[in-house]
């Protein structure tokens, strides 16, 4: 009953976005498209952070791999500009997963703050490649993509592209929801809460975390493919540390371990970065402020706000202190 209502509400919210966006002005459509792509990246990170308890500081690397793959195939081989776009999506997911499979060998055995540090270093390696491997990546110039794919439908149209990205977003949300509710997903939570116990119970915890890492990389690669075409430009700026850190903020702001929270956080951060900076020259104060305030006052993210409000209300009405659950991060 409970979970069916949740599902209905999420569906209602998705429908609202789906129906309203095409009628908004074209800039809003672009913003929402960007937000949805980053929502996929944020949800992929939430698998690691919210469920497996692995805070990755290098998630932009997979986005970068997917995006550069798309751009290189499109400009060098004119590949992926018709129905083969579907193949590029698959390849993008594979390259994200493959990169994660490689990086995971370095990173997954480390815990906590070492994991942060190692993923940061690996992310930097990908940036270094993008920045200096001129002949392949165009270096600092990046790669400008040709017109978006066309196969019966024209993705060059912003509304059409929004629908496509929306479709991928819903698919990603559905797949990831199934994943976290599966025995595998529960084992991840178990590892997050108490890894030694899970090991005693006979789980191969390293393997579970490694698989989660690869899956997250795959979804990151998907976001990269979509990002490359959304933007028409792939540049080393897409793989900088700031992108990875922003992805973390999206998850933490929305609420780790909720999937949907990452999407909400993505919407807010994309809006702040892209739109707020056009309104005020001192937008970095706002961005910095959001970081600091989220960390200090929203430990469970936005998804925990209603609970907190209820907690306060209960306390107010009953004079009883209600302890609200703290989301682990």
């Amino acid at each position: 009953m409970e979970s069916r209502r949740k599902l209905l509400i999420v569906i209602a919210a998705l429908l609202a976005v789906l129906i309203v966006t095409p009628f908004a002005n074209s800039y809003v459509i672009v913003l929402v498209t960007h937000a949805l792509i980053f929502a996929i990246l944020a949800m992929s990170l939430d698998i690691l952070l919210g469920f497996a308890g692995l805070p990755s500081l290098g998630q932009a690397a997979y986005l970068g791999m997917g995006a550069y793959l798309t751009a290189i195939l499109a400009t060098r081989f004119q590949f992926g500009l018709d129905w083969t776009f579907g193949l590029v999506v698959v390849l993008g997911i594979l390259i994200g997963a493959a990169t994660a499979a490689l990086f995971g060998l370095f990173a997954v055995h480390a815990g906590g703050v070492y994991f942060l540090m190692i993923t940061l270093a690996l992310g930097m390696c990908v940036w270094g490649l993008a920045y200096r491997w001129n002949s392949l990546t165009g270096g600092d110039n990046g790669i400008v993509l040709p017109t978006r794919p066309e196969f019966g439908i024209q993705l060059a149209d912003d509304v059409t592209y929004f629908f496509v990205v929306f479709g991928f977003f819903v698919a990603a949300l559905a797949l990831l929801t199934v994943l976290v509710r599966s025995p595998f997903g529960r084992s991840l939570v178990g590892i997050r809460e108490n890894e030694p116990r899970m090991r005693i119970l006979g789980y191969h915890t390293w393997l579970h975390k490694y698989l989660a890492f690869i899956i997250a990389g795959g979804f990151g690669g998907l976001a990269g493919v979509l990002w490359a075409h959304a933007h028409g430009l792939v540049s080393p700026e897409d793989v900088v540390l700031a992108t990875s850190v922003d992805a973390l903020l999206m998850v933490v702001l929305g609420g780790p371990g909720t999937l949907v929270g990452g999407a909400v956080g993505a919407g807010i951060v994309v809006f702040l970065r892209e739109y707020l900076s056009t309104l005020v020259p001192w937008w970095q104060y706002v961005l910095g402020g959001v970081y600091v305030l989220t960390i200090l006052y929203l430990p469970g993210g936005l998804m925990s706000v209603p609970e907190r409000i209820r907690g306060w209300r209960a306390r107010w009405e009953n004079g009883v202190r209600v302890k609200f659950p703290r989301h682990t991060s």
Binding site: E2, R5, K6, I9, V10, A12, A13, A16, V17, T258, V260, V264, L302, M303, S304, V305, P306, E307, R310
Partner: peptide, 14 residues
Amino acid sequence: MSSQVVRSIAWGLI
């Protein structure tokens, strides 16, 4: 995550 949470988010999104 309770339904009310989700509901408020849905309303927020809408």
